[in-house]
């Protein structure tokens, strides 16, 4: 592969062992790669394992199986020194701007903490200048450094979370539902900020969200997850114009378009039933219980995740 991949995820699994010998297979065999400088969107409904995937990649969770290759190195086999470097290169922005900032620390301390840990400043003067610069970069101002998180609105807090992630000059940011707690007009502000920072700094994003319209807007490529598995990966244009997997098709059709004429004339696929419990997933293809195109063999084997068209992958027996 000539492409420059910053991150490769190979057969990644994260299983949680619960009481009574039950296993929750939150992430069950993911394969995808992210190119340097792109935004990869990961979408799916609640409980599909998208957040667990993000947390496993950044090693907040230890993977059960499989490998994550970041900048050519397997992140599960890093030495202490390499681990510290990895921590600096990959950062995370969390969903809940209320819970993810320490209420007892000032904004300056929250943002500067990473600088201290990684020794990225030479003294308090430089540290202060750096924090002011970061606050400016995310659209806040330097006076904010002395305030506490509770003094800010949700959108402002999310900007603080972004400034914290940016402080140590990472190459790769995992954003886990960074805008779903915000109002629509503020969501647009934060998404535009993400895009601007990417352009300025050449960042790579893994953008995790359930809102397919927003993910399509920000991402170059998108992966769709269902019950711990990737069912489709394609560029965002392709995924929207020609979704292959029946789940992706129904997901796209379920999102109402804010245009009454279009919305009312649109043919919609309304899925029956609910997402099965990940504790007891269906045999074969996990989507078969709700799939309008299910065939007998879907119950028998999980369809392979294969490249149906160049750069367009899907796991469905319709294409095997």
């Amino acid at each position: 592969m000539a492409e420059d991949y910053i991150l490769e995820v190979k057969n990644l699994k994260k299983h949680f062992h619960l009481d009574g010998n039950r296993t929750l297979k939150a992430v069950d065999g993911l394969n995808f790669a992210i190119k340097r400088g792109e935004t990869f969107g990961l979408v799916g409904e609640s409980g599909c394992g998208k957040s667990t995937a993000g947390r496993t990649i950044i090693r907040l969770y230890e993977a059960t199986e499989g490998d994550v290759i970041f900048n050519g190195k397997n992140v599960r086999k890093l030495s202490g020194k390499e681990q510290s470097k990895f921590n600096q290169q990959m950062q995370m922005v969390f969903q809940d701007p209320y819970a993810s900032l320490n209420p007892r620390m000032t904004v300056g301390k929250i943002i500067g903490e990473g600088l201290d840990i990684h020794g990225l400043h030479t003294g308090s003067k430089q540290r202060k200048a750096r924090v002011s610069q970061l606050l400016n970069d995310v659209g806040l101002n330097e006076e904010h450094a002395n305030r506490f998180p509770h003094e800010f609105s949700g959108g402002q807090r999310q900007r603080i979370g972004i400034a914290r992630a940016l402080a140590i000059e990472p190459q790769f940011i995992i954003a886990d539902e960074p805008i779903s707690a915000l109002d629509v007009s503020v969501q647009a502000q934060v998404v535009n900020l993400f895009k601007k920072l990417q352009k300025e700094r050449g960042l790579t994003y893994l953008f995790i969200a359930h809102d397919l319209a927003m993910v399509k807007h920000i991402s170059d490529r998108i992966g769709v997850m269902y019950l711990g598995k990737l069912v489709e990966v394609a560029t965002s244009e392709k995924l929207n114009a020609k979704p292959l997997h029946p789940y992706t098709q129904s997901l796209l059709s379920a999102i109402p378009i804010p245009d009454p004429d279009l919305q009312k004339s649109r043919e919609r696929i309304i899925l029956q039933g609910e997402i099965p419990s990940p504790l007891n997933p269906p045999s074969g293809c996990p989507f078969r219980t709700r799939c309008p195109a299910a065939m007998p063999k879907c119950a028998e084997t999980m369809p392979p995740f294969k490249e149906v068209e160049p750069g367009h992958f899907t796991a469905c027996h319709l294409y095997t």
Binding site: A188, L212, A213, H217, S236, I257
Partner: peptide, 24 residues
């Protein structure tokens, strides 16, 4: 106008900037 423009739409062109409403 701001409200209608700040939502991304599945059928719109990607990669344009979302029209956000400044401030709170």
């Amino acid at each position: 106008w701001g409200l209608l423009r700040s939502v991304p739409r599945l059928d719109s062109d990607a990669h344009s900037e979302l029209a956000s409403i400044p401030g709170t």
